[in-house]
Simulated scan of single mutants.
Amino acid sequence: MRHTPHFLMTDVDEVRRLIDGHPWATIVSHTAAGLVASHYPFLLEAPGPDDDPDQIVLVSHVGRPDEVAHELGQHEVLVVFQGPHGYVSPAWYPPEQFVPTWNHVTAHCWGTPEILSDDENFRVLGELVDHFERVMPEPVSLQVDEDTARRTAKGTVGIRIRVARFDARAKLSQNKAPEVVERIVAGLRGDGPYASPALADAVERAQVARTVGWEAS
Rank of each mutant, 00 (worst) to 15 (best):
L18F: 04
E76F: 11
H6L: 12
P94G: 07
D50Q: 02
G155Y: 07
L18E: 10
D201R: 00
H104A: 12
V124S: 01
V129P: 02
P139E: 00
V105A: 15
Y93G: 02
A91K: 12
S60N: 08
P100A: 00
A164I: 03
F81N: 13
E179I: 05
E120L: 02
E204I: 02
H104N: 13
E133I: 03
A33V: 04
V59C: 03
P113M: 02
I19R: 08
R2W: 11
V80Y: 07
F81E: 09
D51P: 11
P113H: 04
K171G: 08
G63F: 13
V77R: 01
S89Y: 03
E96M: 06
E138R: 10
E14H: 10
P23T: 02
Y40A: 10
Q55S: 09
A170P: 00
F7K: 07
H85A: 11
F98A: 14
P84T: 03
T106F: 09
G86I: 05
Q207S: 09
Q97G: 01
T10Y: 05
Q74A: 15
V129C: 07
L72K: 07
Y40N: 15
V124Y: 08
M1V: 11
R205P: 05
L44R: 08
A186D: 15
I161E: 03
P47C: 10
V77P: 05
G192F: 02
T211P: 04
V135D: 15
H85R: 10
P23C: 04
E76Q: 06
A206I: 01
G63L: 08
W110A: 09
R160T: 11
G21M: 04
A69N: 15
A200P: 10
I27M: 09
G48S: 02
L199S: 14
A149R: 05
E76R: 03
R17K: 13
S117M: 00
L58T: 03
H108I: 15
S89I: 00
K176A: 12
M1W: 11
D13P: 09
A91G: 14
